[in-house]
């Protein structure tokens, strides 16, 4: 997917925008006011990885901070060939 993006837009500001967004989504989850969300993220990943082989590179974690509400969105790409129920090693 990433290499497709490179062909589509070579615009430096778009590259910068994407990089900073992804970085901040991660940093906010680690250093943000709610450690609970960061802990949840890891435990959810571990729970999923227990049953489905998950490539941590294929996990998109997005957190939005709000005054009253923070939302956590985790997109995990699961390959069609993935076998369920087979506990997989997870390096998280």
């Amino acid at each position: 997917m990433k290499w497709l993006r490179l062909f589509k837009r070579e615009n430096p500001s778009d590259v910068a925008k994407d990089r900073i967004r992804i970085l901040l989504a991660h940093e906010r989850s680690v250093t943000g006011s709610s450690n609970l969300v960061a802990l949840l993220r890891n435990e959810i990943l571990l729970a999923v990885a227990k049953y489905i082989p998950v490539d941590l590179e294929q996990v998109d974690v997005n957190m939005q901070r709000g005054e009253l509400l923070s939302t956590l969105q985790i997109d995990i790409q699961i390959p069609v060939s993935a076998k369920s129920r087979e506990p997989a090693a997870c390096d998280a």
């Binding site: 910068a16 900073i20 970085l23 901040l24 940093e27 906010r28 250093t31 006011s33």
Partner: peptide, 18 residues
């Protein structure tokens, strides 16, 4: 308008809220 500055500003906003 530069990513390292934006990142640090995000950190400072977090401090202001805490």
């Amino acid at each position: 308008p530069e990513i390292s500055s934006v990142r640090d500003s995000d950190r400072i906003i977090g401090l202001l809220d805490a």
